[in-house]
Design a protein around this nucleic acid. Structure first.
Length: 110
DNA sequence: CGAGTGACCCTGG
DNA sequence: ACCAGGGCCACTC
């Protein structure tokens, strides 16, 4: 359980997401080099809630900017957290997604 | 060891 | 342009 693996990598990148910004599963997967494992990124988030330090999974959304993880958080907790950080969310959808979008391949480039 | 699952993405019609 | 389906990798039982 304490061993490092693909999951930890996802958690690290997710924790690097600045406040007020959001990223997509595919972006993280691509940054890790496993673009095909985009699904695994989301799967890792499922365990993120039980990992420490707590991972801001609420800052991770799908390619459309839709709060898919919201169903797992329970209620609109995810949207509340994002709005609390300055991210505008409407109808479980991130507004100006391309503006608040934080791509590790670009921000963490090099 | 084998099979199933998953908070996705891409391609085809 | 829209809707639908399949595929991919890693982890768990």
């Amino acid at each position: 359980m304490d061993d490092i693996n693909f999951f930890d990598k996802v958690y690290q990148v997710a924790r690097l997401i600045p406040v007020g910004r959001v990223t997509s599963y595919g972006a993280i997967a691509s940054y890790l080099g496993t673009k095909g494992s985009s699904r695994m990124v989301g799967y890792a988030m499922q365990a993120a809630g039980k990992v420490v330090p707590k991972v801001p999974a609420h800052r991770v959304v799908n390619r459309q900017g839709l709060l898919t993880a919201k169903f797992h958080f329970g209620g609109n907790l995810m949207a509340e957290l994002l709005e609390s950080e300055g991210v505008q969310v409407k109808d479980d959808q991130v507004q100006d997604f391309k503006t608040v979008f934080w791509d590790p391949n670009i921000e963490l480039a090099l």
